[in-house]
């Protein structure tokens, strides 16, 4: 087993396996099969891949029609176009009409790097989270991607999955530990009750690295992988708030409306827990590689650790 993998490759493999057994499972692409890592699917099951062309709105609504007629479509497009260009199609035809469409947002977050802000999806969580009857997931490694796919291929619920571009290092050692059911997050490191770091997707690794730096400085952190942005594991968040009263959220998303907002909304009524939201500021993202951009905005372990130490000691 390699110790890192591209989530897109895992999803393709799982989708092929499921689609061989269930011929109603379909992949829809919008001139995006390559970046969706779906070329193996296209070769293995050409009749179960429907190419829509460069038409993301059309793809979502065609998927809704297919789902209404007993099919189980997985619609793959770049996350920015899938969630923002097609937002009304997602809201009305998928979520509101309750059609079983799985919206697979590829090259999510900042992963298109130098292609710029037309291609970034740094608002997709804010948008999808606000739509009733839509589950929202962000897999953090290959085990989680696999477990999530096992759930998605048999679930009857509309869902949005945000997938990054680069290979992700393993966080987990088993699928069972990585994802159990909608609305369940995981405590993946528990050094103590000074602070809790909450993340999802690519920033889970950042949170783990931050916790390691904090440990060296005598600050004991818990690390939470939410994976299910919606439904949200409010029980877990409340338990963590009871223990730490201090939470830092780390996300590859605008600081408005994403994971940090979800956590803050859940915990605000308590009135006893500080939530520090780390993510992209309210401006067009600067140009750079993903790592350069994360560093620039302080979404990296060194910066987050330093910021946390400052806040805990003042």
């Amino acid at each position: 087993m390699p110790n890192s993998a591209k989530v897109g490759d895992i999803i393709c493999t799982e989708l092929i396996a499921a689609a061989k057994k269930d011929r109603n499972i379909l992949a829809l692409t919008t001139d995006s099969r390559g970046s969706a890592s779906l070329n193996p699917f296209a070769r293995a099951l050409p009749d179960q891949l429907i190419e829509i062309g460069i038409a993301e709105q059309n793809s979502v609504t065609i998927a809704a029609g297919l789902a209404h007629s007993g099919k189980r479509p997985f619609a793959f497009s770049p996350a920015a176009f899938l969630t923002m260009r097609s937002v009304e199609q997602v809201k009305d035809d998928v979520a509101y009409s309750n059609t079983n469409v799985k919206l697979m947002g590829i090259s999510g977050g900042n992963s298109y790097s130098y292609l710029g802000n037309t291609h970034h999806s740094l608002q997709d969580l804010a948008i999808t989270r606000a739509i009733p009857n839509l589950e929202v997931y962000m897999p953090a490694d290959q085990f989680q991607a696999r477990a999530l796919m096992h759930y998605l291929v048999q679930s009857e619920h509309p869902a949005y999955v945000r997938i990054g571009k680069r290979a992700l290092a393993d966080i987990y050692t088993s699928e069972a530990a990585a994802f159990q059911r909608p609305g369940q997050g995981n405590v993946i490191a528990d050094h103590g009750n000074d602070i809790a770091l909450v993340a999802a997707g690519e920033t889970v690794q950042v949170a783990l690295d931050t916790a390691a730096i904090l440990t060296q400085q005598g600050i004991r952190a818990q690390v939470i992988d939410l994976v299910s942005i919606k439904p949200l594991d409010t029980d877990l968040l409340n338990r963590v708030a009871d223990q730490t009263h201090r939470i830092v959220t780390i996300e590859e998303h605008s600081i408005y409306g994403g994971l940090g907002s979800a956590v803050a909304e859940a915990l605000a009524p308590r009135g006893d827990t500080k939530v520090d939201i780390i993510g992209f500021p309210d401006e067009p993202a600067i140009a750079g590689t993903q790592d350069e951009v994360f560093n620039y905005y302080g979404i990296d372990a060194d910066d987050i650790a330093a910021r946390t130490v400052r806040q805990l000691t003042h």
Binding site: Y114, L115, G116, T118, H119, I286, A287, G288, T289, E292, Y296
Partner: peptide, 11 residues
């Protein structure tokens, strides 16, 4: 072009 903080990006 395609360097950190350049306005000359891929679109």
């Amino acid at each position: 072009y395609s360097q950190f903080n350049s306005p000359y990006i891929g679109h």
